[in-house]
Amino acid sequence: MIYMIEDTINGILMGSIYGLTALGLTIIFGVLKVINFAHGSLLMVGMYAAYWAVALTGLHPYLTLVLVVPVMFVFGYYLQDIVIQPIFRAEKNVREPITVIIVTTGVWYILDNLTLLVFGPHYRTIQVNPLRGRMLEIGGLMISVPKLWGFVSAMVAAAAVYVFLQRTRMGRAIRATSLDRDAASLMGINPYKVYNVAFGIGTATAGIAAVTLVPFYNVFPTVGVLFDIKGFIIVVLGGLGSIGGAILGGIIIGLIESVGPQFMTATWTEAIVYGLFLLVLFVKPAGLFGVKYDW
């Protein structure tokens, strides 16, 4: 019984981190209407950034946020501005920007394999790690401290993005563009600028996720692929474009992964996740929570 509770808590914590990794995916889709296949790779870049920040400066892992998040924002901003935007413009009249989707796949391949070339295939873990294996004991329950912090940062990040979109001028411009790009541009909003910012924000949230992962997760060139596919599933479960849905979708996946192995071999839980995804696509494509866009 105690294991069951522990697994449940662990599933929620890890799941919220999954949700955090998918948050940027859902933001970018909400605005650009494009699945960013490079999102996992952006997470990977963030993890390398956090790793090297710790290794070179000896900072506390969480303090690297002040470095990683701005760097990731700028990286995402210019990635969209320089690489993706021209293709958007070329495909302006096309309803489904397939070429844009596939170009993000190209970015994925380039980032992953460049990292492989530069840093090699090794698994890296940070050496100066005050959080390694830290556990919190509550009434016999063992809870991982870095995952708990991951949960907290997921909630804070999701709330912050939500408030930003609701309350700020830029946030409103982003929402307007998301609803109707053409109408927004008639009202004097430059949609491409908005795309840049949305991409930057999405990438920055991947940076936050990266920082929370680095204390307890290996860093290697293809680490993003794991989270990529999970992210796709999460955003569809939660409803493409929904912020709350991303976090909830993440928690569902986390729960299946951590509670599932009590009843079956761990790899089967993976198959269940795919099955659930296809099931949702069949019966409730707007996502489990039925929200199309909550902003």
Binding site: T99, V103, T105, G106, Y109, I110, N113, L117, P121
Partner: peptide, 16 residues
Amino acid sequence: PGMHLIIFGVVLILVM
């Protein structure tokens, strides 16, 4: 390793 995938990615972006 992975050189051809980098080439693919770059060619893809340029062609698109």
